[in-house]
Nucleic acid binder design. Structure first.
Lengths: 108, 108
DNA sequence: CCTCTATATCGTTGATCTACGATTTACGAT
DNA sequence: ATCGTAAATCGTAGATCAACGATATAGAGG
């Protein structure tokens, strides 16, 4: 292929950046925590090791169904895990995925 | 066991968590970078010191107006800065705000 | 079985995002 | 003054989010 007459490359990339899987993973994780309620939930779980869903609901000024939605989003991102404990559900941080997020941000 | 009629505190917080300014700042910054295109823009600027808007557009598979929108979002978050350079605009990272993001995530 | 509690899911509403083409604005050069 | 280029903004359409109340589900206990 002929070189472009006007070299409009960025860095050493000759063409447009394709969908970068790392960028997408980064964006997915960043988005999961990109809401004040979810930041608070994550912080709460980091500080408590584990927490029953009802306690989380009591800590936030949101309806139970809304909190449940946020928990679902965090769970889908892998940042937290939920474990059924009788009629309740106990949530905790997933240290591995949290570390992944920290690593991605630290290496920016 | 009597129902904990009023003691529904999490941790040592006696009542519902109010809107936490730090959580909101965190969410705002995380949200700014919570899109693959914005991740790529930030990475590009970190690796290049500075970059003219047109080069960024050429690096992404998006229309110029869309890239301009993403740049605006990043600029509003403080993560990047734009400086007019003749008819062009030169963007660069704002190291202070990037450090703020890193610090918030690292201290999770 | 029935009931109570805890949680998830459904359905809806309004707000916000994302993308684009078209237009406008700003600046340098002719 | 006019033109051309670079960038921002406008206007719009479709998708997704965030919040809620209502409802469904699952397990514990009477």
């Amino acid at each position: 292929m002929a070189k472009k007459s006007n070299n409009k490359s960025c860095d050493s990339t000759p063409v447009k950046l394709k969908a970068d899987p790392t960028a997408e993973e980064f964006a997915r994780l960043a988005w999961a925590i990109a809401h004040p309620a979810r930041v608070q939930i994550v912080r709460l779980l980091i500080g408590r090791e584990a927490c029953v869903c009802g306690e989380i609901v009591d800590c936030l000024p949101l309806a139970q169904s809304t909190v449940s939605q946020h928990l679902k989003i965090l769970k889908e991102s892998g940042l937290i895990q939920g474990e059924v404990d009788g009629p309740k559900v106990c949530y905790c941080i997933n240290p591995k995925q949290l570390q992944r997020l920290k690593s991605l941000v630290a290496n920016l």
